[in-house]
Design a protein around this nucleic acid. Structure first.
Lengths: 339, 339
DNA sequence: TTCTGGTGAGAAAACGTTTGCGCAAAGTTG
DNA sequence: CAACTTTGCGCAAACGTTTTCTCACCAGAA
């Protein structure tokens, strides 16, 4: 356990100044490494401040500087499947710069969103990161004219906004190429509803690798659909697939379970790749899933650094940044060496 | 979409006062419904404030009042399995009182915890809610002498702290009684590692209902353990169980999957109950799991209201509050009417 | 000696609120 | 009509910083 947090009254800069025998102005400058003064004075003030455990009051400081060292993360992803890794990345990037993050879960509720945004703006957040669970949907709130910078992470932003998304096309290509490199000849794609933009992106990347032989099966994002798709592909069919690229891990898990129940060996007879690297699903599948990780943590980190840059007045080129995905190899495709 | 957020310079109370033809003091009092003034004046000020879209600067206000209308949620549950529902409850309880929540994910890293706590204290949070992923473990930070109130939610707190946990014993009793009410005769308990306090609480509650015939199998919190336990109980055994109370949903899912693979019908031959109501697991199980929900959202709500009461100076009796769990009936036990 | 310029440091204003106090006008009481 | 009381409102301080302005002092140059 660390030292207990002090419970004595917080020392103010006034106390530091008095104890060091200088004015508050000098104390402030000493602690912020600004202004001119003798080395001795500066050191003495710092020393005294440390002894008193002085930490500046962020509200007083913010009142003047218009900076709160606080940002807001707005999301409609109540499950946290996507938001938590993003949040972790943001935090990781910003915490040692003294920035704290308000997490606001708005569940597609416009009124709730407004309440949260207003509360954050009252608190003078330095910026807002909008996030969500679908890259092709917007949050139910219009932040275009917000008085603070906004960046979008894993959610759709308006024209000319700064947006971070994962490069699903690249991730999909790697997944399909991985299957091909394992010697799989008939590789199909079982994925989610056509209404999702990411379904198209992934499907097109798949098609680009596979070419004419591409077979795409659209359904739901569920294990049940994975089962059903396997039934469709295997029941009474002579030449079933030997490679399956799934649109997400839940479908992949359904597929793997269904294959096992049919006595089809994974990865012996069929190799399966998922998408999302949702640990709880991917790692519990038998065998554990090889799957595409969207690197959401890195995405959060980038978003965090960007919002900070914007808050500090730097100019950031608007546009969509696609961050690379990474194939996480487990056991559902067979050994890690190409066949 | 709602009205776009204003981007014009924020009106200050000075602007409101000027526009309404009163002093800032009167304007402040009018808006806060304090002080004495004519009804007309008060209304006029409010009217003007509304027209200008005035929202008080929380930093200025906080500087004076020592309240930031901000609290911190500290957690080491990176997955968010437990923290997210708690967070949702807190937010739900506090957002319309204008309170925003800092989420700080510290992963059992003492230094990181300290950084986060210090950052929050600098920002003058009104209180801290400590949360976690195990009720019998403490966060790696000592908050006993924190200068703000602290409550503990779903994590162990020091002597004389205010702590909220779920009433696992009650939830377990209901689960076991539910199995018994279905006419199940040999009800066993397959649960997690003995090192977890909640394992004991749940096991003892199970034992209290079952009595001498209690059979408890300790293992891991994994699907794999669920499979293994089923193998132990069925392989070559004459009279297998007909009711299984599992320590969590992952074990339950493993159990149900294993039974299906053996051709044992759930709920036809065996009824299974889980614990946690982790949607992603419970709902995807075939059949969907009847399971115990710990009502973490309600727990968060209580914790939020309590920290607010403490922040407002109310006295709250220290001690452990156990909030009731609720059995969520799906299909893994058979029809909803007692047999 | 007087001027110039650099150095070290303090006084006070500023940020945007809330609030204690005071005061004039109006109302009430005897 | 005098003496209170109430009403309605403004002045200014306060919160804890940062920052601008000012100034005294000293060294070196003219």
């Amino acid at each position: 356990m660390s030292d207990p947090v002090r419970n004595i009254e917080r020392a103010r800069i006034y106390d530091v100044a008095a104890a060091a025998g200088v004015s508050v102005a000098t104390a402030s400058r000493a602690l912020n490494d600004t202004g001119r003064m003798s080395k001795e004075t500066r050191e003495r003030v710092k020393q005294v401040a440390a002894e008193l455990g002085f930490r500046p009051n962020a509200m007083a400081r913010g009142l003047l500087s218009k900076r709160s060292f606080t940002i807001g993360l707005l999301t409609n992803d109540t499950y946290g499947r996507f938001t938590l890794p993003v949040m972790a990345g943001i935090s990781e990037a910003l915490v040692d710069r003294g920035v704290s993050v308000f997490l606001c879960a708005i569940e597609d509720d416009e009124a709730l969103a407004k309440v949260h945004v207003d509360a954050m703006l009252d608190k003078q957040v330095d910026g807002i990161i909008a996030s969500g669970k679908r890259v092709d949907r917007r949050l139910p709130v219009d932040l275009r004219n917000a008085p603070v910078p906004v960046v979008y992470a894993f959610t759709d932003g308006p024209e000319d906004s700064v947006t971070f998304v994962s490069d699903d096309a690249q991730g999909s290509r790697e997944a399909v190429q991985w299957l091909a490199a394992r010697g799989r000849k008939r590789i199909v794609h079982i994925t989610g509803p056509e209404s999702f933009a990411s379904v198209h992106v992934r499907a097109e990347a798949y098609r680009a690798v596979i070419g004419e032989k591409a077979e795409i099966y659209y359904g739901k994002w569920t294990e049940a659909w994975g089962h059903e798709a396997v039934a469709q592909l295997w029941d009474g069919k002579a030449n079933p697939p030997d490679g399956i690229f799934c649109g997400n891990d839940q479908i992949a898990r359904g597929v793997v379970d269904a294959l096992r129940e049919r006595g089809v060996s994974v990865p012996g007879n069929v190799s399966v790749v998922g998408f999302d690297n949702w640990e709880i699903v991917a790692a519990a599948t038998r065998p554990p899933l090889t799957t595409v990780d969207m690197n959401l943590r890195a995405l959060g980190r980038e978003a965090g650094l960007t919002i900070l840059a914007l808050a500090e007045g730097e100019r950031v080129e608007p546009g969509i940044r696609r961050l690379p995905c990474q194939l996480v190899v487990r056991q559902s495709c067979g050994g890690s060496a190409p066949a």
